[in-house]
Write a protein that binds this DNA or RNA. Structure first.
Length: 419
DNA sequence: TCTCCGATTAGAC
DNA sequence: CTAACGGTCTAATCGGAGA
């Protein structure tokens, strides 16, 4: 039998902040999404007060004032760095690891003995070396290890570790009967509803449901999930990170924008970020899409959500070239009299860069590869935005709100706390 | 009728 | 003081167009 451990950081963003602000322990804390819009991470105290995941922050204002909930803007530089540290430690425990998200890692412990001890050791080492609290769930498949992790998180008695594989068949059935089907990885809001209509409300219900009916009614995805609950591994390990198939860069604006040059400025920054990401994975894109959006929550205002695409004859990763297209597309779609709240760029039809021979019928195609390489190196060395293309964020009008961002404790010398 | 493709849906975090 | 609701990504499925 396989022993897959899923190690998941507790309230990850909040925990990152608390590591450098011990005074925030025991205080209800939330971290907000970009633009200080929604709650994306909550401390246990904030959860207990009823703050919901994804809840718009302005809706929490009253509650926050009553109970002194502290809200912080998200600090992705900090979170990414803390994540790397945690993952590095975890990956020492097995040759087979999959960093699944910024705060989760699957670690294959198959073949090892004393799994509980190993799990506690992982927890302790991560805690000791980084300050990050984590929980470990072990199961025979990824889906069950995620479920086991959920149990570890929820029951303090488990001390942060839960091994599903150590249960008897009777214990498994009993446990799964107590868990709502919505806790299963891959079962979201809609599916929970539809499954409920078929009398499937617990994880156990799903595990023992009639497979052909399930397949016919809900598709392959849920069939795989069922097999995983039955301890047959269907979702395999992805050891190395696959290249992105599409790259999106977009942002909601701090306040609505009406002028074309401001939109273009924002887009030029999105283009720069998207193309840098593209080059980092050594790829090129053949389809560029640009979109503009008014504020969909303002029912009182006229709505306009155009999106325009241009297929390129030759794929590119050249910021300058993409920026010219973005400019043109933006201009084509732009209409005055609308208050734009968001814009973005999408790169797709992505392929690896091959050192293709220039078309001999059209030799010496101008390319900026060298320039882009220099740009990446300079920005790497002197920090993001050291060298920019176009105005790239010079305008302040659209800049997102970030009123409560913590310092970059681990990635910026000026921000390193002096003890 | 089959296949292809873009758009939509659902999910994760 | 105001206005005030994220961002990226993947896979499956749907529905129409064209072969």
């Amino acid at each position: 039998m396989q022993h897959i451990a899923l190690v998941d950081c507790n309230n990850f963003y909040v925990s990152c902040e608390r590591i450098f602000r011990p005074d925030l322990n025991k205080v209800p804390v939330v971290v907000l999404s970009n633009n200080d819009g929604c709650v994306v991470s909550r401390s246990n105290e904030a959860k207990a007060l009823g703050v919901r995941m994804g809840q718009p922050w302005f809706e929490c204002k009253t509650l926050a004032e009553e109970h002194g909930i502290l809200a912080l803007s998200s600090n992705y530089a900090l979170y990414a760095d803390m994540s790397n540290r945690v993952m590095q430690i975890l990956c020492d425990y097995s040759p087979r690891c999959e960093v699944y998200s910024i705060d989760e890692c699957f670690v294959d412990l198959t073949g090892m003995r004393r799994l509980r001890e190993v799990s506690y050791a992982m927890r302790e080492r991560v805690g000791m070396w980084t300050g990050m609290p984590v929980c470990v769930g072990i199961g025979p498949t990824k889906t069950l290890s995620k479920l086991a992790n959920h149990v570890a998180k929820k029951h303090p008695r488990s001390q942060g570790v839960f091994n599903y594989n150590a249960l008897t068949e009777a214990q498994k059935s009993k446990l799964l009967t107590q868990l709502p089907v919505s806790e299963v990885w891959g079962v979201g809001r809609k599916l929970t509803q539809r499954l409920g209509a078929h009398g499937i409300t617990t994880v156990q219900d799903l595990r023992v449901a009639h497979t052909p009916t399930l397949r016919a009614e809900f598709g392959v995805v849920i069939e795989k999930t069922q097999r995983e609950l039955q301890e047959v591994a269907c979702i395999d390990f992805q050891q190395e990170v696959p290249d992105k198939q599409q790259i999106i860069s977009s942002r909601s604006f701090g306040s609505a924008v009406t002028e074309l040059p401001v939109l273009k400025d924002a887009l030029s920054l999105f283009v720069a970020n998207a193309c840098a990401k593209l080059r980092k994975q050594n790829s090129q894109a053949a389809l560029i899409q640009v979109f503009l959006q008014t504020n969909r929550f303002r029912k009182d205002q006229p709505q306009y959500m155009p999106c325009l695409a241009v297929p390129l004859p030759r794929p590119t990763h050249d910021t300058l070239e993409v920026n010219r297209w973005a400019d043109a597309l933006c201009e084509r779609m732009y209409k005055p009299d609308y208050a734009y709240k968001k814009a973005g760029i999408l790169l797709s039809e992505i392929s690896p860069v091959t050192h293709q021979q220039a078309d001999w019928t059209e030799p010496d195609v101008l390319n900026n590869d060298k320039l882009m390489q220099a740009l990446d190196e300079l920005n790497q060395r002197y920090g993001r935005g050291a060298v920019t293309v176009s105005t790239q964020g010079a305008y302040k009008e659209w800049q997102m709100r970030q009123e409560r961002k913590s310092p970059n404790y681990t990635t910026c010398w000026e921000d390193v706390p002096v003890v």
